[in-house]
């Protein structure tokens, strides 16, 4: 009976093997490539850290893509959090239709980014777009705005796409958190004379802190990898295959990475370095966020 049980190893084996083959090996191979210059066909030339040095000192477009990515995150994440917690709170207190509201608002989250890109580029088109048309008809604008051609409004539209997509997800996560808060706390506060706004600000929001941290961390990690939405917003509707939007205002880090390796160029070594630099940034943010959560538990 005390012989080594082979079964747990047998059950764990498929995961370990496929992870090594299809995730770990490519990841390590990319790391090696990031020290080479290689176009995928000719000979590899070892260049040491030169790819990284060039990225950090001689590629303004990399910094621009990083800047764009952060601007879009700053535009979208706080607003989605605020809106998400508000909608969740109102839904939580709604007498009827909670499941209906959740379902309806969650639909954007499960929709393919291709659809979101096309629909938004139609809605914000200068000439034929729904948004300009509406504003003009309502008398709010005299002539259409070039939403997708101006650097700031282009970023704002992408932020809006992300908000539209994630609001339902944030709302559902917050709702689950609110369900976990004991009703006794609310009753006690009500007896002490707290109004609905006070209940929201003084009880609900502070008790949801853990969930907010979770949402912020995951949004930053996925936000740093933003690609589908900006690419598809400028990808096909107008027939243009322009990279990065107007004056690269919508170029994100992953878009730059994909463009450098598979679309405009095939600089595999250089773009592997981009991916690894982004990875380092993601790790830094994960550590910072981990500290945030851990620090909170100590102070309890």
């Amino acid at each position: 009976m005390k012989a080594i049980n082979k079964w747990p190893y047998f059950f764990a084996l498929p995961f370990v093997l496929t992870y090594l083959a299809f995730h770990l090996y490519p990841t390590m191979y990319s790391l090696v490539l990031s020290f080479y210059e290689w176009n995928g066909i000719g000979d590899k030339a070892f260049v040491g850290l030169q790819n990284y040095v060039r990225l950090l000192t001689d590629d303004p477009l990399f910094f621009k893509s990083l800047y764009n990515t952060f601007v879009i995150m700053i535009m979208s994440i706080p607003a989605t959090l605020l809106l998400g917690v508000t909608v969740a709170y109102l839904t939580f207190n709604a007498a009827k239709g909670r499941l209906l509201l959740q379902t309806v608002n969650f639909l954007p989250y499960i929709t393919t980014p291709v659809a979101i890109g096309f629909i938004f580029s139609f809605m914000f088109d200068w000439q034929t777009g729904f948004v300009n048309e509406m504003f003009i008809r309502l008398g709010l604008l005299d002539e259409g705005v070039y939403w997708l051609q101006e650097p700031w409004s282009a970023k704002a539209v992408i932020a809006l796409m992300i908000m539209w997509k994630h609001l339902g997800y944030f709302m559902i996560i917050y709702l689950a958190g609110m369900t976990a808060i004991s009703q006794d706390i609310y009753e006690a506060a009500k007896i002490d004379g707290a109004g609905p706004l006070q209940l929201f600000a003084k009880i609900t929001v502070p008790l949801l802190r853990n969930i907010t941290v979770f949402l912020v961390v995951t949004s930053i990690i996925s936000g740093l990898q933003l690609f589908d939405e900006p690419k598809l917003l400028y990808g096909g509707w107008s027939g243009s295959t322009q990279i990065g939007g107007p004056d690269n205002a919508a170029l994100t880090v992953i878009w730059k990475f994909v463009d450098e390796s598979f679309i405009s160029n095939s600089n595999f070594g250089y773009s592997a370095a981009i991916a690894y630099l982004l990875f380092v940034i993601i790790i830094l943010f994960s550590i910072v966020s981990y500290r945030l959560t851990a620090g909170k538990e100590e102070s309890r």
Partner: peptide, 26 residues
């Protein structure tokens, strides 16, 4: 067991894009 558990948690943190080039070539 605990080594495997740790391995699984670490793998969750690595974004797929990091190995994308290697994967396509593979």
């Amino acid at each position: 067991r605990s080594a495997l558990h740790f391995f699984m948690m670490i793998t969750m943190m690595v974004p797929t894009q990091v190995g994308l080039i290697g994967y396509v070539i593979e």
